[in-house]
């Protein structure tokens, strides 16, 4: 048991740092050349969160998500951007947890990613609605939802291609 928890902690650390690296990396991707919407992101850091959720567990996924939000906010962002990413991330992770608990058999990673991406955007719009005190931000939601189908489709396809590395037992030879 001891060994398993150590392994879990180590994997969580690796995935958290991977998620942070991905969110740094995706800021460099010229995704706006393909989808000309301000602030659009592919969401490859969410690949890691979903991967951890489905191959490891809910607690681990929450840990990775919060780690990413806190660290990226400390590196790049401000309080608003932290609130945006936390609310969007928690909402999309919550949807994925519900899917995992209830109807996991009827969806693939693509569907989970698309629902997650659209809820991520909805969460961000809700936060900005509260912060700016205006409902007019909802005008930005329909284009974001269309974009989240595209982005969620891409990230979901990547998730389908990834093998499960978390359960693999490695022989350590010293």
């Amino acid at each position: 048991m001891q060994d398993k928890s150590v392994r879990t902690i180590a994997l969580c650390g690796i995935f958290a740092s991977l998620s942070i690296i991905f969110s740094t990396f995706e800021a460099l991707l010229p995704i706006q050349a393909f989808i000309p919407l301000p602030g659009i992101k592919l969401g490859i850091s969410n690949i890691v969160v979903l991967y951890v959720l489905f191959y490891m567990g809910t607690k681990e996924a929450f840990f990775v998500l919060l780690c990413r939000c806190v660290v990226t906010a400390l590196i790049f962002g401000s309080l608003p951007s932290f609130l945006f990413s936390v609310c969007g991330g928690l909402l999309s992770l919550a949807s994925a947890v519900i899917i995992k608990k209830t109807c996991v058999g009827s969806l693939s990673f693509v569907g989970v990613s698309i629902i997650g991406a659209s809820l991520h955007n909805t969460g961000q719009i809700l936060v900005s609605c509260f912060m700016l005190g205006t409902f007019s931000v909802f005008y930005y939601l329909p284009p974001l939802l269309f974009a989240s189908v595209v982005c969620g489709g891409v990230t979901g396809t990547i998730l389908c291609l990834l093998p499960d590395v978390t359960k693999k037992e490695r022989k350590t030879e010293i």
């Binding site: 489905f54 191959y55 899917i99 995992k100 109807c103 996991v104 058999g105 009827s106 969806l107 693939s108 990673f109 693509v110 569907g111 989970v112 698309i114 629902i115 189908v149 489709g153 389908c160 291609l161």
Partner: peptide, 16 residues
């Protein structure tokens, strides 16, 4: 248990 399919399912179309 709790593993999502890697192949597309009807639920994906519903999600879209």
């Amino acid at each position: 248990e709790g593993i999502v399919s890697r192949k597309l399912k009807p639920g994906d179309v519903l999600a879209v």
